[in-house]
Amino acid sequence: MLRGLYTATSAMQTSQKKLDVTSNNMANMNTTGFKKDVVVTEAFPEVFLHKLKGSIDNKSVENRLFVDVKKTGNEFSLSTTGGFFSADSLNGVSFSRSTLFSIDEEGYLRTFVRDSDGNPNFSEGNYILSQQGSRVFVGQGNVDINDKGQVMVNGQQVGDLVKVPPRGVIGTINSGLRLDRIQTKFRQGSFEETGNPLDFAIEGNGFFQVQTPQGIMYTRDGNFTLNNNGEIVTTEGYLLLGQYGSILLDSKDFQLGLNGEVVVNNEVVDQINLVGIKNLHDLRKYGENLYYMDESKTLEIEEFEGKVIQGFLEGSNINPIEEMVNMINILRLYESNQKVIRSYDEILQKAANEIGKL
């Protein structure tokens, strides 16, 4: 009975974090270049649920074992009613009757999430386990899975994905929801014309590079100014980087090319460092509208393919109506789980005060 308390409590804790993130989004809806955050959650591992008495004949389960296999390229979608698939998560081994996975860069079967381009991202995925509990390695061979859940590579069996449950197992159960990570959505914001020659807006995927005391960081906030030395800086005083380091100007009388060229008197004197980043999901917010790369990850730079527009600023990508609806839904979910805990508390109180008297 107490499992429901843990489930409701974990849901309330997750809702509280969602509310914090949504509130922060709304507070920054007028912040230049701000990008929306979303909370990514996951269920705790699914564990086997056993009968208290009696058992189920495993042979009858094996006889009706059938796996529905759908393959698209290197992606496999499997489901079965005669057993369970298992995956190695950070919180332990999880079991399910359906699964979606592909082949990662190292040749292992692994679950994934899709990035903004729709491609599999394995960094947040879990390894698929064989019937014996080991990771399934397929390499770069021709991979196929038959209707018994057996993994075949170039015609040779390398693993069996379906685990027949122990006697007495009637299904799976988990302990609720947990916070997985906070993900930033780098969708383009709308442009606002300012007429200020030191206001820059990036159209497309890319970032300005700025020099901070903690090293080089990245930003979409193009609200710049000049310091006492004539260098282009952010509102916090961090240097905007060009090909030769800081960008020096004698005045605001300059033009900016679409690729970031700084033109003075029809002569290119410098060019803003504009970079594209492949692994956007590994960027972390630092504050002051800056981003840095997660220390455990490697920065993957790609060529900047957008353009930079002078005299404009990019607004946030926050939709205030959408955020308000999210906030209302989160509050309702929080209140619902609060009622569940209150009901459990009343039941336990009766069990202690009334049943205990009998």
Rank of each mutant, 00 (worst) to 15 (best):
T219S: 13
Q156D: 10
D160R: 11
F122I: 12
R178K: 14
V153P: 06
N126Y: 15
V169N: 04
I128P: 09
S190T: 12
N205Q: 12
E124Q: 13
V136P: 09
S130H: 11
G204R: 00
G139M: 00
S130F: 04
D199W: 14
L161D: 14
S175C: 04
D199N: 15
G206L: 05
V153C: 02
D147Q: 11
D147N: 14
V158A: 01
V143C: 00
V162P: 09
L179V: 13
G195F: 03
K185E: 15
L198Y: 13
F208R: 04
Q157Y: 04
G155K: 08
L177Q: 09
N196S: 08
Q209R: 01
S175P: 05
G149K: 07
V158K: 00
V169H: 02
V138T: 00
T219R: 05
T184V: 11
F122D: 12
S123C: 10
M217S: 12
S190F: 07
D199R: 14
N174S: 08
I170F: 06
L161I: 02
G206A: 02
F191G: 13
S130K: 09
Y218S: 07
G195D: 08
F207P: 06
P165A: 02
A201F: 03
K185Q: 15
N205H: 13
G195K: 04
I128A: 07
K185D: 13
L161C: 10
A201P: 12
G159D: 04
F208S: 13
E193S: 14
F186V: 11
V158H: 00
T219G: 10
P197S: 10
Y218V: 10
G118K: 00
Q214F: 04
V162R: 09
D147M: 06
K185A: 13
F137R: 03
N205T: 12
I202V: 00
G195T: 03
G155W: 06
I216Q: 09
T212C: 14
V169Q: 03
N126M: 15
R178Y: 08
K148A: 11
N174L: 05
V162G: 10
E124R: 13
G155C: 04
G133Y: 00
R187P: 06
A201G: 10
F200Q: 09
G133M: 01
N154W: 04
G176L: 02
Q188M: 06
R167F: 08
P165F: 01
Q150D: 13
Q211L: 10
L198K: 12
G206E: 08
V153N: 02
P165C: 03
D144Q: 05
M217K: 09
P165N: 01
V162L: 04
F191V: 05
G125P: 09
G168F: 01
G118V: 00
Q183Y: 11
I216E: 14
P197F: 05
V153D: 06
V169T: 07
I202N: 02
Q156K: 15
F122E: 07
Q214V: 05
V158N: 00
I145T: 01
G159H: 04
G215N: 02
Q183D: 11
Q157M: 15
V158P: 03
E203G: 06
S123F: 09
S175V: 10
